[in-house]
């Protein structure tokens, strides 16, 4: 069973000036995968998340989460959601906020207390437990939010721009926590304009471009789609003879290999000390996005 199965999903704004925010989006995501949902402003990333949560009516097609059609209460039992703006109720303290959601999750008595204490400790907010969340920094609110989501473990977490506005310390804390959750087998869908978090956490990527799915696949595979690149220290270090399976790279001191084995052979045969770097021709998600935009 797939984590997410999306067939020709479409959404149109209900306003008078109708606009297709999503069109014919189709893909399947395996369980345990962590999807980076990338794209420019207005590409449809947040809309896609809202459709999964049943916060927007599905216009066309269908989508299911672990076999449960969206929208339904059952489909939401698998999902935890972190909004783009962490907005715990301002009039509640961090502890009261977690207690509120703990009760809504069905915890009572000592079990609830234990869950809240653990969540506060996990988020590093034990000392600020009784402070109203309106006095929390954005980083503190975001940490509280992730623990709110994990009060009753979820199979899939949707994160909408989770790092926006966070300081470096909070970003590191947050990434570390996400990696812990990933190690525990929690799947994620992350939208972000910050490639570092996508690269740190994601296994798959979907690039939306004006509501259409431009690219979808495993990140490892997509990054190596253009082959492997050896970059030499300078143009003088480049071998005179074109190695087997190579073609000139994007720079005058590099070669591109479609087969990794050929590239590795070249590395062995030649002076490794003359090589500046070796890796996939597309360096990362940022490069991949640039490729998509160029296309």
């Amino acid at each position: 069973m797939y984590l997410i199965e999306c067939n020709n999903l479409g959404f149109m704004t209900p306003a008078k000036r109708k606009a297709n925010l999503l069109q014919n989006v189709s893909f399947t995501l395996p369980q345990g995968a962590r999807l980076a949902l990338a794209g420019g402003n207005g590409a449809g990333k947040s809309t896609f998340l809202k459709l999964l949560l049943g916060l927007e009516p599905i216009g066309e097609g269908e989508v299911s989460i672990l076999g449960s059609l969206v929208p339904s209460v059952k489909s939401r039992t698998h999902i935890g959601y972190l909004a783009d703006e962490p907005s715990p109720f301002a009039y509640l303290s961090g502890k009261e906020y977690l207690e509120l959601y703990g009760r809504l999750e069905g915890f009572r008595g000592n079990e609830l207390k234990d869950k809240v204490v653990k969540a506060l400790s996990q988020s590093g907010l034990t000392d600020a437990a009784n402070v109203r969340t309106e006095n929390y920094s954005k980083g503190m609110r975001q940490r509280l939010e992730i623990e709110r989501v994990m009060l009753k473990g979820r199979k899939l977490i949707l994160l909408d721009e989770p790092l926006t506005g966070l300081d470096i310390e909070s970003q590191l804390f947050f990434k570390k926590r996400l990696n812990q959750l990933a190690a525990d087998g929690v799947s994620m869908i992350i939208t972000s304009h910050e490639p570092s978090i996508l690269e740190a956490v994601a296994t798959h990527i979907a690039v939306l471009h004006f509501g259409k799915l431009a690219v979808f696949g495993k990140i490892d595979k997509l990054l190596t789609e253009k082959g492997w690149e050896i970059v030499y220290k300078d143009s003088q270090a480049v071998p005179d003879k074109l190695p087997k399976g190579a073609k000139p790279g994007g720079q005058n001191n590099s070669f591109l290999f479609s087969d990794r084995k050929d590239a590795e052979t070249e590395l062995k045969n030649n002076m490794n000390e003359q090589v500046l770097s070796f890796g996939s021709a597309i360096k990362g998600i940022e490069d991949l996005m640039a490729e998509v935009t160029a296309k």
């Binding site: 949560l53 049943g54 916060l55 209460v73 059952k74 939401r76 039992t77 999902i79 935890g80 959601y81 909004a83 783009d84 703006e85 962490p86 907005s87 715990p88 109720f89 959601y101 809504l104 999750e105 939010e145 709110r148 949707l158």
Partner: peptide
């Protein structure tokens, strides 16, 4: 209206 607090609540598996 900008608050995301209630969006979070609607994302919960609650009736």
């Amino acid at each position: 209206d900008d608050s995301g607090s209630y969006r979070i609540m609607f994302a919960m598996p609650l009736n």
